[in-house]
Design a protein around this nucleic acid. Structure first.
Lengths: 197, 197
DNA sequence: TTCGTCATATGACGACCGTTATAACCCTAG
DNA sequence: CTAGGGTTATAACGGTCGTCATATGACGAA
């Protein structure tokens, strides 16, 4: 609750962004929402809203990468489950008013903004974490990449769909399919390895 | 180019929305963009921006449903290809500045707005069109629904990802996977029917 | 022609935006 | 205690937003 103001502002910006994209995260709302004075904003973020948006996206990216990386130590399926569980919790905790902050910025901002390239980095990071874990467990590189991309994109789409439906249905339905596909990719590789030996 | 002003405004609103969500579609920009006077906006849309947003989402929904429905007459795979091709074209024609207008509104707007429930309707419509075609070709209902949901969500996520990447890569990669999954679902059902007879 | 209706044009209103300047405050160093 | 830099508070700037009132034009009906 009482971290340093700068971190509080970043976390607040992530939360506001996840509810309506960057336009919904006004400097005044952000100051009120994070319990910091409006005047301080430009003390911590001299670059103004652009810098704040950029750092907020990276903040959300780092946070999810940390969660995802830790749970991937227990294998790709555990990582997938964590990936899904995190977003499901965010949806439910916010009564389906919040979604993925990275997607919100990706959709909302003009493509030239630095914050947008940070969203691309975030998506790529998540894909690489997942596909890397799949490859470590024997999945061929192209299959791993395709499956990781399918996971990230369908989860992002599902988050938005859940938000407008006011229900975690979409996320739960694709969860089953994605788990099957992942287990399938892993089983196929163990089969291959068995045949090779 | 010279349809009635009301339709021009709706099409213009869809285009602006697809580039940065509803906040990016200001009434002034829309008037300029669609070649209609600002004062006329409230003549055609007395409900103001809310009504315009609602109708614009339905407009985009109807348009895609028409395209999708027509191509689905040639089977689920043809429909899937059309679904992907439409978005790919929009991305490329706009130099990756435009995405899915429905997703933009879904992410941008507070959940209480009527326009948001129109986005939910759109997503549901597309899922139903796809899953309906799959069922018509013998796929079991639950499999059809899960696959259709996976298609719509992953395509939506991919559109956003392509936009920030400035490349159709994501869409092309998931296209292959989705086609395989669809053909698999169809093959499995014909196999089942063969065994039954 | 005169009127009335539909469409276009213009300008203004209050509200909020991002941003900045400036004044008050706290707290540690000397 | 005093001095001074880092932080907080307040007010204001120009600009854009959605919205509306009003004025001007087009044009068929009486």
């Amino acid at each position: 609750m009482s971290e340093d103001p700068r971190t509080r502002m970043l976390a607040g910006a992530v939360d506001l962004m996840s509810r309506g994209g960057l336009p919904a995260a006004s400097m005044r709302d952000l100051a009120r929402h994070s319990g910091t004075p409006l005047g301080s904003t430009y003390h911590y973020f001299p670059g103004g809203k652009r810098q704040l948006a950029l750092e907020a996206v990276r903040f959300a990216d780092d946070q999810l990468r940390s969660w995802l990386g830790r749970s991937l130590e227990q294998g790709p399926v555990a990582g997938l489950r964590e990936f899904l569980a995190v977003w499901r919790q965010i949806l439910i905790d916010s009564d389906f008013e919040a979604g993925c902050p990275v997607l919100s910025v990706a959709v909302t901002e003009p493509r030239a903004e630095e914050a947008v390239s940070a969203t691309r980095d975030a998506f790529v990071h998540w894909c690489e974490l997942l596909s890397g874990s799949l490859r470590e467990h024997g999945t061929p590189a192209d299959t791993a990449e395709a499956l990781a991309l399918l996971i990230v994109t369908s989860v992002e789409g599902s988050i938005a769909m859940c938000r407008v439906e006011g229900s975690p249905r979409a996320l739960d339905v694709i969860a089953r399919t994605l788990e099957e596909l992942t287990e399938n990719a892993l089983a196929q590789c163990t089969l291959t390895r068995t045949l090779d030996s």
